[in-house]
Amino acid sequence: MTGQEPPRNPSGDDQPPPDTGMGMTAVAYLISGMLVWGAIGWLVDHWLGTKGIFAGIGAVVGIGGGVYLIVRRLGA
C-alpha cells in the first residue's frame, strides 16, 4: 500500500491545500488570549487589591492580541 504512487492531483483540482485545522487554531488563539491576559490581570488585581478591573482589561487586551495573531498567522 505504502509503495503505491499517490495521484498527481489529490483533491481533484488545483486549489492550494485546504487548512482544515485553521478553525481550531483561530478559536484556540481567541480563548487563550482571553485566558492568559485575563489571568495576568487577575493576578495584578490581587496585588493591588482592586476588584477585577485589571482582569477585565486583561481579557479585552488578550482578545485583541488573539485577533491580531489570527490576522498575522492565518490571514492571507
Binding site: 481550531m24 487554531t25 484556540a28 488563539y29 480563548i31 487563550s32 488570549g33 485566558l35 492568559v36 491576559w37 495576568i40 487586551v61 488578550g62 492580541g65 488573539g66 491580531y68 495573531l69 498575522r72 498567522r73
Partner: peptide, 27 residues
C-alpha cells in the same frame, strides 16, 4: 515569535505559548 512589530511581542508571546504548547494536547 509571530511576524509583528517588537513592541507588541510581549503581548503575543504568552498567547502563542499558551495556545500552542499548553492548549493543544489538552484539547
Amino acid at each position: 515569535i509571530p511576524p509583528a512589530p517588537w513592541f507588541i511581542l510581549p503581548l503575543l508571546i504568552p498567547i502563542e505559548f499558551f495556545s500552542t504548547f499548553l492548549v493543544r494536547p489538552f484539547s
